[in-house]
Amino acid sequence: MTHRTVRLHVNGREYERTVEVRKTLADLLREDLDLTGTHLGCEHGVCGACTVLLDGAPARACLMLAVQADGARLLTVEGLADGERLHPLQEAFWTHHGLQCGYCTPGILLTAKAFLDEHPRPTRAEIREMLAGNPSVAAPAISSSSMRS
């Protein structure tokens, strides 16, 4: 029982892969599905770079086994844009230079998407609390740009 076959929907597409049971969801996305937009920073749930939407809710892809995602619907950063048209959040990050090196940006985008889906008119304090889960050297830039827009 060291391998299992998993089926999952990612960004609207169905995948089936046989993976080691100890493999994390983040590694499945990156290594088996070639979706390398999900970044790995700390690999223990602190940095938030690997945040994806699991059945619509933000979750750390490094803190789940791939086998646990069997049957799940996932959205990764690759699924945000509509073809060539960026998602409004991506557009806003671009316009306001809301990133520096960009490494943690995929996780921030997905965290922000889930957050805005739930809080369409957030307060400054709510934005700060939301961003606290995705530490970044660029966080001050993001936080000020989101407050301007």
């Binding site: 699991l54 809710a57 933000p58 750390r60 965290t111 889960g133």
Partner: peptide, 12 residues
């Protein structure tokens, strides 16, 4: 509960 990790941690 709001002090427990972050929203993405509390999801799971």
């Amino acid at each position: 509960l709001r002090h427990v990790g972050h929203a993405a941690i509390r999801t799971r």
